[in-house]
């Protein structure tokens, strides 16, 4: 990876994306046996700087860092000096003074990770773990990794795969990162959502748009159900939850319409009964728990590639 940070999928070339996915695959192979823990980042400190609630992303980064033997400091804004008015700059500088070399940041403001990386406030590597409605690059990487595992004939290239992203696109950083990454790998991405839940300017994205889930089901190789993000919804985006579930939920009838080899994905946390029924979430086509396991591997790969080596090559004979 040429950049010291991971802020957006836009910063990654196709080669770099494949480098991360390949590294994750080798890590899977290594850690599949009895090598559960690798000494690679021993003595290095990684900070989880979370200004927004999260279960799986924070735990996943923590597990990834610990499997590489890094020390992990967890920070969550709740119960910290942020509630006393401490700024992002001061918080980050404080953590770096405690030895942080890589900061994983989640923030409700789009662009927070970029600000931290480009402001010169800190020297650490920055990894974006979700910034507002903007991006969540490691989620997209783990989704691509999961898709690749299920379609081995598309190992280096996703051309010919049709991937549906369904639901609350408007509030979804996962949808944005995935649209960028999956199209970069060659897949065809189709957003399926009511018009009220599509962002302004979506017609300029490299994706197809559909308002009808039933028309698409039988054409998809992977279907990604997005969480309805009630906490970001200040308006009425759809009449009732029942109506949303009827039009855009993956229920039992729709499950039958999918191709038998199609996979069902969800970035979590799920609203069972709203965007996805329990039967779909627990069906044999669901790869939702694989996504969680793969998340740790992809994040290990990102940590290794960002901080495992020197940022500049040094002189001297090394063997």
């Amino acid at each position: 990876m040429h950049s010291p940070h991971l802020l957006s999928i836009n910063d990654l070339s196709k080669g770099e994306i494949l480098e991360i996915l390949d590294t994750a695959r080798e890590l899977a192979r290594i850690t599949d046996g009895s090598m559960k823990k690798l000494p690679t980042l021993r003595g290095r400190t990684v900070v989880n700087l979370f200004f927004e609630d999260s279960t799986r992303t924070r735990l996943s980064f923590e597990a990834a860092a610990k499997r590489l033997s890094a020390d992990v400091i967890n920070f969550s804004a709740k119960g910290s000096s942020v509630s006393k008015g401490e700024s992002l700059k001061d918080t980050a500088q404080t953590l770096e003074a405690m030895g942080a070399e890589l900061i994983i940041i989640r923030h409700s403001s789009s662009g927070a990770a970029q600000r931290l990386a480009e402001s010169g406030w800190v020297k650490s590597h920055i990894v974006n773990a979700g910034d507002g409605m903007h991006e969540h690059p490691t989620q997209a990487l783990l989704d691509a990794f999961t898709i690749r595992n299920h379609f081995p004939e598309h190992d280096r290239d996703f051309s010919g795969l049709r991937i549906g992203i369904v639901g609350d696109i408007l509030h979804s950083r996962v949808a944005r990162s995935n649209a960028l990454l999956l199209t970069s790998l060659g897949a065809k991405v189709v957003f399926i959502a009511p018009p009220t839940l599509l962002p302004v300017g979506v017609e300029n994205w490299p994706v197809e748009i559909s308002y009808n889930l039933d028309d698409e089901l039988s054409h998809l190789d992977a279907i990604m159900m997005l969480r309805v993000q009630s906490e970001r919804m200040s308006d009425a985006f759809f009449p009732t939850e029942r109506e949303y579930a009827r039009d855009f939920g993956l229920g039992t009838q729709r499950l039958k319409a999918l191709k038998p080899e199609a996979i069902i994905m969800h970035p979590g946390p799920m609203n069972r009964g709203l965007e996805i029924s329990a039967a779909s979430a627990d069906s044999s086509q669901s790869v939702i728990l694989e996504q969680v396991a793969n998340g740790v591997l992809v994040r290990m790969a990102v940590l290794y590639l960002l901080m495992g080596g020197a940022s500049v090559p040094t002189e001297g004979v090394l063997v």
């Binding site: 390949d22 192979r29 090394l318």
Partner: peptide
């Protein structure tokens, strides 16, 4: 992943084990 000179050069791609 077990090298002690990792920090002396850019990250290496992993090879199959």
């Amino acid at each position: 992943m077990f090298r002690d000179d990792l920090r002396l050069r850019p990250p290496r791609p992993l090879v199959a084990t």
